[in-house]
Design a protein around this nucleic acid. Structure first.
Lengths: 336, 336
DNA sequence: ATGAAAGCGCTAACAG
DNA sequence: CTGTTAGCGCTTTCAT
């Protein structure tokens, strides 16, 4: 086993083994058409024999493509954690990119330091593209990305940049509308809402869906804002109960916040769903763990993720990349 | 704004602007000692002026270091999702590595295809090191990693390779012991356990902690095995109840499984904690969302993550990298 | 269809 | 302390 110290084979070794020139090996490796069948088979055999793997650095140096794309997470840590979107996206992205021999570099831009690092990375040309996750409207990073001239797509719309940054997303507005209509159908008369931060699509679009159904019945006092955390949902519910003690339903913009709302309702002695119906959003793991289990809106996460990556790849190939919005499903459980 | 088409500056441009040679610029950039102060300041100014950022590919080509490390996730998708460990580790790792101008590449090795991709990646020399997350004993990937000769560390011990692969981990055995002792102190007499898969440290070590306290009272029929999912926890609890209907406490090796156990107990008409006390492990988000909230064991995740990365960096620098085990905390809530 | 050769931007060894 | 120079492994003209 003296192969420990053996250097990794280069394209030169392959060329020698195959009895052709380095140029020809390169052509085979890159799928160029003008290669004879005999040369191609010889090269392929030589590659297998030598165990050759291309040196990416060398390739990058001449092609000035890095073969990697950055996934930028703009989420404060706590939420990231809970976001089902994220892990699905990650899995789908690594898999799809791997098929193209590209890799996924992860960066977290939750604070200024993080943003600066991402900006430097992008300016340094270290990635061929960027995949934005849960980027808020007006995030300063957006400018940096544009300045760096790196192709970018988003998973979930970036509010205010919908026409600039292609995105794939679940139909937040439609999902919220479906949930609200369902609550109305159940005979609920006084329906409140706990929203997410309004600079995220899940914050503002779900609210839009809600108000579009209820019209002027969705008065200002019926709406409180949360921060997507469980504690935030609990606090928001308490505020809502204080202002509108007689409400009989609440639509909460995320399951995690809904879990918090459930706790607040319980503490206030309200029964769910008898006194107050609770509707969530996401259909995340926690939805089936609460008591009662949450009636919620399921997003087609895997599909959204796939579409997002597809868009980025299209962009890299300079093809069209039009936004994609995918339908949601209402999942009825015990809470409404 | 005609700077759109301007090429990125190279070390050559910087050298010219600073009035020194490329060699000197390189020396400054790499912190070599033998550079005059005047040369250094000139170079630094030139770097700032030109907006120079090093071309990693070129650097890699000559140093044969890639500046990136792979984080390998060997977890089937469902769990990944729920694993609090993971997101903390990711954040800590990206941050710490960024300080060293290194980046984190993510790969998922949940199935054969994924493993093969990781192996190829490593064999290709695309990463300077590997950070293993929740790798199971006997994972075929382990051999590949050794063959590729890539320095690797694990977050959580890799069973059977404790002496080969440095790791940082929470004290699973100690945490389990603490929880078991607590249940005993509460006067519980008939304590069951739902374990995780025994080829993971969380599976076997927590079980060891449990049996080390209970001795022969931890009979075979008191122990059932789960798979870290909520549904698995529920099923395991049902099995346990069928075999040992009179048990008055159960220690569940993860909060998610404990949430499932809670459902099974509820369905069986058992009150928690009056009839049956339930202890979890992890102190993940779900622990405070269940009803009653879970009494559980908190792991110092951030610290574990930091130590893991520190170990990897030590390994890259060819320094000592001894395993680190960090203490856990018992968190008492409503379920026990 | 293929070989030869010119770099891509950088580091490191060498000479001074 | 600093400039010069030889590649690192690959792609891509340019000839042939």
């Amino acid at each position: 086993m003296s192969n420990l110290a053996r250097k990794r084979p280069t394209i030169h070794d392959v060329a020698e083994a195959a009895g052709v020139s380095r140029g020809t090996v390169s052509r085979v490796l890159n799928g160029k058409s003008n290669v004879s069948l005999s040369a191609e088979t010889a090269v392929r055999r030589a590659v297998a024999e030598t165990g050759y793997v291309v040196n990416r650095a060398a390739r990058s140096l001449v092609t000035s493509r890095t073969g990697s794309i950055v996934m930028v997470l703009s989420e404060p840590q706590e939420r990231l954690f809970e976001d089902p979107n994220f892990s699905v996206l990650m899995r789908v992205a690594t898999n799809q990119l791997a098929d193209l021999d590209m890799s996924l570099v992860l960066m977290i831009a939750g604070d200024d330091g993080g943003r600066e690092r991402v900006a430097r990375y992008l300016r340094g040309g270290h990635a061929d593209g960027a995949l934005l996750v849960s980027t808020h409207a007006g995030d300063p990073l957006l400018e940096e990305i544009e300045r760096a001239g790196v192709p970018a797509v988003a998973c979930g719309a970036v509010l205010g940049r919908e026409s600039v940054i292609p995105y794939a997303a679940a139909d937040d507005r439609g999902g919220a509308r479906a949930m609200t209509e369902y609550l109305v159908q159940q005979g609920r008369k006084k329906i409140g809402m706990i929203t997410g931060p309004l600079d995220t699509p899940g914050g503002s679009l779900r609210l839009e869906g809600f108000t579009s159904v209820l019209g002027r019945k969705a008065g200002k006092q019926m709406i409180v804002h949360g921060d997507y955390t469980q504690a935030g949902g609990e606090a928001a519910m308490e505020r809502l109960l204080a202002t509108v003690p007689d409400l009989d339903a609440v639509f909460v913009a995320s399951d995690l916040m809904a879990a918090g709302a459930l706790q607040a309702l319980h503490a206030a002695g309200r029964r769910v769903p008898e006194d107050v119906a609770v509707g969530g959003f996401d259909d995340s793991a926690i939805a089936s763990a609460t008591r009662p289990a949450l009636t919620t809106v399921r997003q087609p996460l895997a599909q959204v993720a796939e579409e997002t990556v597809r868009l980025l790849i299209a962009l890299l190939d300079e093809r069209e990349a039009d936004p994609v919005v995918l339908p949601t499903d209402l999942v009825v459980r015990g809470s409404a």
